[in-house]
Design a protein around this nucleic acid. Structure first.
Lengths: 221, 221
DNA sequence: TGTACATCAGTGAACGCGCGTTCACTGATGTAC
DNA sequence: TGTACATCAGTGAACGCGCGTTCACTGATGTAC
């Protein structure tokens, strides 16, 4: 299981720990990203992790970012060959939910990692960081750091394409984004860790398709 | 803090522990419902809890049920005096989100309590139990145990009222429920423990109102 | 080209924490006769 | 009405767990001269 190292120095321990964290998160979500276990799997002392991450939370954040990247990539892959802007938007929704159902652990760590829920008082920032911004409703949105294919960016792109096609008023982009994101995120959450969790996959897929169609119809109406 | 008991027998330890659990959940969500702390606050030995709950999970489930009751009650309260079916639906959506923003800890425990997310394989049941059923899409739905004012029931009632008013086809009830529930739940989740968590309350409220209006428009279109 | 030395990436053992849970037990309560 | 006794609701101490984190340390690497 543990690849025995022949060198004292690991080479790329940072990446190796994130990869191990992804494996852990895949099976058990954010709470399963255990620092000791990640180092164990990497064949390294627990202490070694602190050379690369300030604490466990920093590791979990890195894993969350990586999971979000995977999500973006998966959604993007579902869009290949699609040019019609309406279909493009539909694929964002389908891809978002499909990823959550296919990889509930990664979906979990991507969105439920650090901030278990916002406690009392106002938060320090804007949550997870790399997938924020859409729908903040105040002027041009700063691009998220690094994540080119972040789900929220893909959603935004699809909506922009609708605007270009004359199928959506520019002033409707933000509300539309809000409705679409809330809709698919809510369904994904209800289906992976909520009351819908027990339903068979086929039923969830059918419901998801209908939901996405309704959302798209609501937006392009 | 701890009310000193004068009797050896507590009286209603079951309820007292759930109440203590609600206090804990209110501040820190599901993960803060700690059995030992609940007994401490009740002025009772940790062991005593096992006379009333099989294990910690059973306690958390009871707290989740109580929190869901509070949620239903809050939504119901927001509907007082409202008779127009469209407004009725709107109030369900507003109330759902408002409760999540007002009581993120209770919202958390109500929906994210036991099943952190559905692990590998098919689940044993249908999730949280008392708020399931809408949108399962197969015939008449068994009434949830006890929770008369469960949020999903209030949503269903509002949609039924729209049907009675001739504003919604009966075959559209389930899809509409799916879209509404997903929409408000998603927004509530993004706002309390997701990327929208850092936004000021006023911005969230404004966005929520717009979202609910859009959802209602999408349903009654 | 060789050597001194600063720098960096690891080691291995240990600590304290708070938790859920279990042990054998005792104090209070209510019912049968 | 009093007493024996089953039943139930608590006690108090302890256990083991696995975690995140810290200690002083050593092995490997690369750069200056």
């Amino acid at each position: 299981m543990v690849p025995a190292r022949d060198t004292y120095h690991h080479g790329d321990l940072h990446r190796a720990l994130v990869d191990a964290g992804l494996d852990l998160a895949r099976v058990g979500g954010a709470k399963s990203v255990v620092l000791r276990e990640a180092t164990r799997r990497t064949g390294v002392t627990a202490r070694a992790a602190y050379r690369h991450f300030a604490d466990r939370e920093a590791l979990v954040r890195a894993v969350a970012r990586a999971a979000l990247d995977h999500m973006g990539t998966a959604i993007l892959a579902g869009q290949t060959g699609v040019t019609d802007p309406v279909d493009l938007l539909r694929e964002v929704g389908r891809g978002y939910i499909a990823f959550a159902l296919d990889e509930p652990g990664w979906f979990d760590v991507a969105f439920f990692a650090v901030r278990e829920f916002v406690g009392s008082g106002s938060g320090t920032g804007s949550g997870i960081g790399s997938d924020t911004g859409i729908g903040s409703g105040v002027g041009p949105v700063a691009p998220p750091a690094g994540a080119e294919a972040a789900p929220s960016r893909l959603l935004r792109s699809a909506l922009d394409a609708l605007v270009d096609a004359g199928m959506l008023g520019p002033e409707r982009v933000l509300p539309a984004a809000s409705m679409c994101w809330s809709g698919v995120h809510g369904f994904a959450t209800l289906a992976t860790r909520g009351p819908l969790a027990g339903l068979p996959r086929s039923a969830l897929d059918a419901q998801a398709d209908r939901l996405v169609d309704d959302l798209v119809a609501g937006v392009t109406r």
